[in-house]
């Protein structure tokens, strides 16, 4: 078992893949690995790439990977696909866009689903990213579909968050939910080969003007992921962003915030799990007491909370 950890430490890629599964599934070995490897993390540049379905995120990541390899950087990708809410299954096709670099040792691609875990996807994703970091990848890219709150949270887990927009989504820029634009360190207008792309860039610029001089200036990159146009410049922008964070001392600040939110995710998840099992174990007479109005929901909630044993080790499933 711990043989697997040793193999990962020695740089065995197959062992890494297997250990990622343990980490994703929170097996005892996975939890041990999380603790074990955490000290070796912190070197990689974590890049979150998010945007609406079909914006070209995967194509863009493949193009970024090619550029990164040209610069001699290694890159690992964690691509998140939504799970079917009905069966829990998923079809993940991100491999398709990676044909030419699919057997390059400097590129590692791993697909995972949102799996409807309680506490969301973030805890597993963080832990997997840490492991890839410890393994030595220079860039770690997280691909998520920017739709729900969870995705915004995930985007926050990166050093650099790239929001991918595309023409053809109507007044999409205006319609973006509050909070979505704010997470971006870099805007990408992909599919810049399409006629409406210039308008999207224009819309972003005017939004920035509206936001005023007080808000940070966010660079806008136009790309054609399918041909690679603009991608070298985007990669440079991503790398520069981290250099800037380092220069201004913001990187440590962000890192701390990020790790604290990871702590929060883990604690919340454990809390939710315990709450759910306490609820499930609620005796029938107490349930009935609610219905007969002998006890009010808030009182019961407080009683439940008091009864929770919160000092158990995390990740018991």
């Amino acid at each position: 078992m711990s043989d697997l950890l040793a193999r990962v430490r020695a740089g065995d890629r197959r062992a890494l893949a297997r250990l990622l599964t343990h980490v994703e599934n929170r097996t005892p070995l996975g939890l041990a690995a999380e603790r074990e490897f955490f000290r070796q993390t912190g070197r990689a540049h974590l890049v979150g790439i998010t945007g609406p379905p079909g914006a070209g995120k995967s194509t863009l990541i493949a193009a970024l990977a090619r550029e990164a390899r040209r610069l001699g950087l290694t890159i690992a990708v964690l691509a998140v696909d939504p799970t079917s809410p009905i069966t829990g299954g998923a079809v993940m096709g991100d491999r398709i866009r990676m044909l030419d670099i699919a057997s390059d040792d400097g590129v590692f691609v791993r697909s995972l689903t949102s799996r409807g875990r309680c506490g969301g996807l973030a805890p597993s994703l963080c832990a997997m990213a840490h492991l890839l970091d410890a393994f030595g990848f220079d860039l770690i890219v997280l691909e998520t579909v920017g739709a729900g709150q969870d995705d915004v949270e995930i985007a926050r887990l990166a050093d650099t968050t790239v929001l991918v927009l595309v023409p053809g989504l109507g007044d999409h820029v205006q319609a973006l939910k509050a909070g979505t634009l704010e997470i971006a360190d870099i805007f990408v207008v992909n599919k810049a080969d399409l006629p409406e792309a210039a308008r999207v860039v224009g819309d972003l610029r005017s939004l920035q003007r509206l936001a005023g001089a007080a808000s940070p200036h966010i660079p806008i990159h136009a790309t054609v992921a399918t041909t690679g146009d603009g991608v070298a410049s985007l990669l440079q922008g991503i790398l520069d962003h981290r250099t800037q964070l380092d220069a201004t001392g913001q990187r440590l600040e962000r890192l701390q915030r990020r790790l604290l939110s990871e702590v929060r995710f883990l604690a919340l998840e454990a809390l939710e799990e315990r709450l759910d099992s306490a609820l499930a174990a609620l005796p029938e007479n107490e349930r009935a007491a609610l219905v007969t109005r002998q006890v009010d929901p808030r009182t019961l909630a407080e009683r439940l909370l008091k009864g929770l044993r919160l000092n158990l080790p995390l990740g018991s499933h």
Partner: peptide, 8 residues
């Protein structure tokens, strides 16, 4: 997928 598997 419909049978609950993760398919790549």
């Amino acid at each position: 997928r419909d049978a609950g598997m993760e398919v790549i």
